[in-house]
Design a binder for these strands. Structure first.
Lengths: 338, 338
DNA sequence: CCGCGAATTTACAGCGCTGTAAATTTGAGT
DNA sequence: ACTCAAATTTACAGCGCTGTAAATTCGCGG
């Protein structure tokens, strides 16, 4: 029962351990007869390579960490799925790390507590500023995801939030909406994500010749449909009367749908609603949600490629890449009629 | 730049490597003065333990694998979150493994491809039968999750699907519903999950004195809201006229809500709907979903405890545990009026 | 049958850390 | 001061695998 080691196989086959290793790795310069003999020994003994030994010897684990706030947010779960798939294609597995959106947790991830357990880290920061990130001594290659501005020295993959937000607003304006609300942004310290989407929101309004009315900006916590519903509901009850609501993410939009429905406000007839992320529910709820969709496949691919280049030795300046997004038109803010 | 090793610290502090190791681990029998000196050396050199070395030396990685079909299914994402949290409390990290619901992938996981990379595995099988699972030679402790019957030799944690399903049906019956449909079960090869919920469905009908009408069983693929909507829609269009729909999971229920809404059928007035899992959206959609909720915390706790006991040497028969569930009453099938 | 470059195979030294068991130091009690 | 158990510290042998560089074997022309 004691685990079969490489050396056991070697002895059994009458070759050196290195030869067995070569066979295991499919190294070309192994004579066919030797390969067969070794393979037989492997089968007979039921040998399986021990990854711990391999990891130590090679200094690699072929694991990457993906760190983001919360797996329960559908966008992140879907992102994790896509990245895991792309990583598998490249021979890596993914270790998920939830920061809970807490600064210390993000810091802990940066501090490379997991040094030696992963070959690289993909981090979607929420709290950490680019300067703080830049200062951390890194032992492991890192690629940043998401909207936060990234330090020049680090690689970063994102979509153009500002442009996408402006695009959403312009679409709403093209539908004839004039009082476009934004939901929700924490008032005291809007996340960088909210900040960028707000900037785009404003740009979109201006580009459409609409006034910016701060009373249409709904304060509230993010990434929780119920608090979004409550926040928006409160605003509506206080008299806010939008004809469209630009929600910062799908969960907020779900909350908005609920708040509106509870008040008998029809979507999209009375109020159009847009989401952001195109998570699976967006297309299922009724009305289905028009929303911004990042090209997650491309995001995953680029992020992994950059990270793997780093792992393989690239040591230049940070690459900052922008991947595509699209506006998916659905019932909650349909295409403009012609 | 070359990584600082334990031995570097040892030399710097003028002690043996083992003493440094002891300090790192907070071993008690280290004199205060020595500890301080070593700590200083650690700080000065910026030493961080290399987990690869540790893993090899101890034969442990403090990582567990959690294998299930798909991270994009909200229930699994939420389960992963809860288990990751509970695992962290116990000093373990979680490696997520998506099987995509494919038999080979499940087999690959069982074959301990990841031998040596995790100390234990939590597996929620979809395809593998208990006999097949039992036969696999295991190198790593394993605990099964979910409904599939488990071999006697393995630990297993689940909720009582049959009882829960019966409970749902009885609740619907208590609401006065008489034509309770089941959505959706693949006709050819219903998953074990569907099978058990169907059994409970039948029991519930019988317990309520309602006839079992197979024309009320909607065939269709599982775990995809859109195909559920399509399947249910087709059934409705063909004349099926239920006054309640028991959906095998929340996604199916979301699809049902959509199919019903598209046909102007009101929920719960005309048709009551129930989900299963109580994923986050269940409480947000309109109408919010009455559904079965497993006590995930308890599930996570028990599963991890069993697994860790195995890791620490327990080698007895399989423990089969049933954790609690509850029926969460919401708009789609509200509490019975008194 | 020998010489040689190419094809195979091997010896060996770690990768960085920990467990064991033994060595050394300490300090309380004579 | 001296003894002895308890408290500290250490030497050393791996954990299982791989990279390097050197050794061996092979195949073929001469």
């Amino acid at each position: 029962m004691p685990n079969v080691r490489l050396s056991d196989v070697a002895r059994h086959a009458g070759v050196s351990t290195k030869t067995v290793s070569n066979v295991v790795h499919g190294f070309v310069h192994v004579r066919e007869s030797t390969r067969a003999r070794v393979q037989q020994a492997i089968d007979e003994l039921g040998y399986r390579p021990n990854l711990r030994g391999r990891n130590l010897a090679t200094g690699r684990t072929n694991m990457l960490a993906l760190a983001f706030p919360d797996l329960r947010i559908p966008y992140f779960a879907e992102l994790a799925h896509v990245i895991a798939e792309a990583a598998a294609e490249r021979g890596y597995r993914l270790l998920l790390e939830e920061s809970g959106g807490a600064p210390e947790a993000e810091r802990a991830i940066l501090s490379a507590e997991e040094a030696g357990i992963v070959d690289g880290v993909l981090l979607q920061p929420v709290w950490l500023t680019s300067t703080e990130i830049a200062q951390h001594r890194r032992e492991v290659p890192l690629v940043l995801l998401g909207e936060n501005t990234a330090p020049l020295t680090l690689d970063h993959v994102r979509i153009d939030n500002i442009a996408a937000a402006a695009q959403v607003v312009q679409h709403l304006a093209a539908l004839g909406r004039q009082r476009i609300a934004f939901a929700c942004a924490k008032q005291s310290a809007p996340s960088e994500t909210s900040r960028q989407r707000l900037i785009g929101y404003q740009q979109g309004l201006e580009a459409s010749g609409l006034p910016v009315d701060t009373s249409l900006i709904v304060p509230g916590q993010v990434a929780d449909a119920h608090s979004a519903a409550a926040a928006l509901g409160a605003a509506l009850d206080e008299g806010m009367a939008p004809d469209a609501i630009f929600c910062r993410d799908d969960l907020t939009a779900l909350g908005a749908l609920r708040a509106l429905a509870e008040r008998g406000i029809r979507v999209p007839d009375d109020v159009a609603v847009t989401g952001w992320d195109d998570s699976a529910v967006a297309s299922v709820v009724r009305p289905s949600l028009t929303c911004v969709r990042a090209d997650e496949e491309q995001l995953a691919r680029r992020a992994l490629d950059l990270l793997i280049e780093r792992i393989e030795g690239y040591d230049g300046l940070g690459r900052h890449e922008v991947v595509e997004h699209s506006l998916v038109l659905r019932e909650s803010a349909p295409a403009v009629a012609h």
